[in-house]
Write a protein that binds this DNA or RNA. Structure first.
Lengths: 222, 222
DNA sequence: TTACGGATTATGGTTTTCCGTAAAATACTG
DNA sequence: CAGTATTTTACGGAAAACCATAATCCGTAA
């Protein structure tokens, strides 16, 4: 079982609950913070003192404060922690249920577990901690397990996402072309942009551009 | 101080925290449920037994289960509770920070307090309960207090919202016209729809339709 | 009734997006 | 290096969206 745990969670009410879970599991050496920056500093300090944490439980979205912060989201925190301490176990604990984002957490950030905040998430969180502490298996809440199986045969490009973001910000296709040309982004012809949009619409079964942006927003892609 | 409280909150972890708050305030006669339907039934039963609740604390968004439910959101629950028991005090406790929605909760659903789930929401919730129990004042978390002041000089129509929803669902303007004609929705000419869209774009400072849908989605209007 | 104002509808022209075809450039392979 | 495949670019016509103007409808008040 884990010896030393750290929690990144902004909502104070939620914090109370998580701490109760750890106590139930007889883990008493834990710390928490509402700020990602804090958590990261604590983890770095712990390494330097030769007493590193062995589990991070992190929320994904964080409210902003008057306080200035460098790390604004759980995704970023997880990314940086993975670099800092590659062998640590990480659980993402979030209400986020968009397949796209969950998938990228497992594949890109190499998290060990994803627990969906929900009606019975306390039990799930306990299960996840158990499983991960005793093996190298991955844990994922059953409600969103399909996220990993789903074969996303269409690989979305960085440029695709740029286009979608610009569109949702009110930029016209012509303007996007101008921006791409002036910032040396490779495919920047009218046809290329049109073709990419057409493929995206095809893949997401969108009737038109408005629909496409609406869908990808809902999916958490932009 | 309130004698009998009921809580509608789906996230189990969050529930723990809220209950702790009530205990701190020495309120011990409280119930909670993860389902809006349950809460509503309990409240109706309590009235019939001549022991009605005097405070409802409700979340706004609820996860769905295998269970079939009639009331799917906190907004609906609050609406129905207001009809059932017009004099009860209601606090909305949510992460929702979209001005539009908060405003409509105060004006349409006549809530007594809105507490934003955040870094220090436990203290705020306590304050809100205190204030509301001893007076008829309204409570709103400082972070979102501006929602009520903001003068929304442009009154959005039911038709406006219908148009936006159809657009975000991938319906073209021509198709919307057809739908409006076949369902006898009053302004259903090309020009009328175009004019309304143009006004909306003007008001929301949107460059085009994609932008408009993106903005209104972000604001929680659709 | 008539005049007025607001909302809806009608019309026409411009811009933007959409979609197919084809040429050019680039990458990949033997 | 030639040959093939893939991607990017170019072009043009059709559809949809955008925008300004003018006509019509309709309720209200003089």
């Amino acid at each position: 079982m884990f010896k030393k745990v750290i929690i990144a969670e902004d909502l104070d009410t939620m914090n109370l609950g998580i701490q109760q879970v750890l106590k139930d599991l007889e883990i008493f050496d834990f710390q928490h913070s509402k700020y990602c920056d804090d958590v990261f500093l604590k983890m770095r300090a712990a390494i330097h003192q030769n007493e590193p944490y062995d589990l991070l439980i992190s929320d994904l979205s964080f409210k902003t404060d008057h306080r200035e912060v460098k790390i604004t989201s759980g995704d970023e925190l997880i990314q940086k922690v993975r670099e800092l301490q590659p062998d640590i176990k990480i659980i993402a604990y979030s209400v986020e249920d968009k397949n796209y984002r969950i998938k990228s957490l497992f594949y890109d950030a190499q998290i060990d577990g994803f627990v969906l905040k929900g009606l019975n998430s306390i039990e799930e969180l306990k299960k996840a901690i158990h499983l991960i502490s005793t093996s190298d298996q991955k844990f994922i809440s059953p409600e969103v397990a399909s996220a990993l199986q789903e074969k996303n045969n269409y690989e979305m490009d960085d440029v695709d996402i740029k286009i979608l973001k610009y569109l949702s910000a009110g930029t016209s296709q012509d303007e996007i072309i101008e921006i791409f040309k002036s910032t040396d982004i490779k495919p920047n012809s009218k046809s290329a942009i049109e073709k990419r949009l057409s493929k995206l619409k095809d893949f997401f079964k969108a009737n038109n551009t408005v629909h496409l942006v609406s869908i990808t927003k809902d999916m958490g892609i932009i």
